[in-house]
Amino acid sequence: MISDNIEKIKSEIPDHVTLVAVTKYHSTEDTKAVLDAGVYDLGESKVQDFLRKYEEIGNGPRWHFIGHLQKNKVKYLIGKTFLIHSVDSIELLNVIEKESEKQDTVTSVLLQLNLAREDTKSGILREDLEAVLKELPKYKYIKVKGLMAIGPLTQNNEEIRNIFVELKKIYDKIKEKFSDEVIQMTYLSMGMTDDYTIAIKEGSNMIRIGRKIFM
């Protein structure tokens, strides 16, 4: 069933779009079934669950941390993740830099934006982004590889589309203006089970899907 669901999703998305299978809440057995189906980008949102699966499965997959990240848990992710999607503050960046320096490794991250201004979601607000970007050149152990956002919780597709359109514009502007050793706009991570088709149309090249894989 998992392999069938993955094949259906793959048939619907362009080759340039990376499918991150959101394996949070699912067993190691089901996670291995995702790998067997040919998807090697796995998304986890709780550090404890991630560490358990990392120990059981290893570093063969490309592990993505997509949940809200507490600063005191950063040290457990360094050197193990392909991407941390949910970087939402300068304070968190500072901790990632410090812990990465300790392990002498470079950590790749995405900046999470909260363009819908939803209180239930983390993320950098539009008006605070410039200040964050100005801080980035000082980091030696972090690469900012793109942006991430969660679509607004609504049934209104136009509201969802507007947020994705805005995020793509910001992504393109940063890519044009800021690209350097630290800032490398490679991934635009937007779109989940309910809205990934909209996200892809508006420029997403990385989607995070869980429910549709395991349904």
Rank of each mutant, 00 (worst) to 15 (best):
D88H: 10
T105Q: 04
S11G: 14
G38E: 10
H26W: 06
R211G: 10
N94H: 09
I57S: 07
D4S: 11
Y141G: 04
E99L: 07
G38N: 10
E118D: 07
I6N: 07
K168R: 13
N5F: 08
T186A: 02
G58N: 10
Q48F: 10
S89W: 11
N5S: 13
D4L: 12
Q112L: 14
I13N: 01
M192W: 04
F178K: 14
L93A: 07
D180P: 02
D4K: 12
Y40L: 10
D180R: 02
V20I: 12
Y25E: 13
S11R: 08
I66N: 10
D36M: 14
E99A: 05
S204F: 03
Q112P: 13
Q103I: 00
I209H: 02
K53V: 05
D128N: 15
G43H: 04
E29L: 09
V87N: 10
I6G: 07
M148N: 07
K134N: 15
R161G: 01
A21P: 03
K98R: 10
V34F: 08
D194K: 09
S204C: 02
D30K: 10
N59F: 07
G210Y: 04
Y25A: 13
D49W: 05
M206F: 06
Q48M: 12
N205H: 02
Y25C: 12
T28G: 03
V109H: 08
I57T: 06
N157V: 11
L110W: 11
V109D: 04
L125P: 04
K73I: 13
